[in-house]
């Protein structure tokens, strides 16, 4: 094919691209690690308030969101295999499932946040001020950490949508799947962060 001959002439270093993606992931992990340290210290200093405040969160919504993210991670990982097996249709389907699961996550998150805000739990709300500093810290960290994570989900949706379009118009193929792989790496990192956020905020009560 004509186009593949052109692609082979362009200098490309897939190993280097992947390394760069991993370095970026390391910085992201350290960013969230800092927040996890803040969370664990404040939890250690206010054990009773954190345990009570955590009971306000819905374990059901948290579990559904965890499973949605795990499925989306599996589908984008499978997309990395299917593009190499030259199965374009399956790749597009798997990427679409990934995006849908991410949207399911965001919709759940929206209802969860709105529920909390309706009950008067939002940063510097009168309800929280009457409850004391432990609850204020818990919900402050809850909104900041899940919010920062949700921002990463939104970025992921945009990124995977770009990959979807590029697979569709054949600019990502089995010959050049590195953008799909790197988006997958980013998405798995978002998943790993949620794997720790979920028990820390929802389960430990």
């Amino acid at each position: 094919m004509d186009s593949s001959a052109v692609i082979q002439n362009i200098h490309r270093d897939d190993e280097g691209s992947k390394m760069g993606m991993w370095l970026f992931i390391f910085t992201e992990l350290l960013l969230f690690a800092g927040l996890f340290i803040v969370y664990s210290i404040y939890r250690y200093l206010n054990p009773a308030a954190f345990a009570l405040a955590a009971e306000q969160l819905s374990v059901t919504i948290g579990t559904i969101n965890t499973i949605a993210l795990l499925i989306s991670s599996a589908t984008i990982a499978m997309a990395s295999s299917s593009i190499r097996l030259k199965n374009k249709k399956l790749t597009l389907f798997l990427l679409l499932v990934t995006i849908i699961m991410a949207i399911v996550f965001m919709v759940n998150k929206y209802f969860e946040w709105m529920g909390k805000i309706d009950h008067g739990f939002f940063p510097s709300s009168p309800t929280l001020q009457s409850l004391g500093s432990g609850d204020t810290l818990f919900f402050g960290l809850y909104f900041f950490m899940t919010g920062l994570h949700a921002l990463h989900i939104v970025i992921g949706i945009v990124l995977i949508a770009i990959v979807f379009i590029r697979v569709k118009n054949n600019s990502i193929t089995d010959n050049n799947p590195v953008l799909l792989d790197n988006s997958g790496l980013y998405w798995h990192m978002v998943d790993v962060i949620w794997i720790f956020l979920f028990p820390l905020f929802y389960l430990i009560t």
Binding site: R12, D13, D14, E15, T63, T66, I67, L70, I71, S73, A74, A77, M78, S81, S82, R84, L85, D174, N175, N176, P177, V178, F198, P199, L203
Partner: peptide, 29 residues
């Protein structure tokens, strides 16, 4: 440079087993 061709292709089945394991661990926790 060796590009993309040296990558090991993991079969779909492996991913599904891992996914099942992950969901099971979530429900256990």
């Amino acid at each position: 440079m060796e590009n993309h061709n040296n990558t090991h292709i993991i079969p779909y089945k492996t991913y599904l087993y891992i996914l099942a394991g992950l969901i099971a661990l979530t429900l256990i926790s």
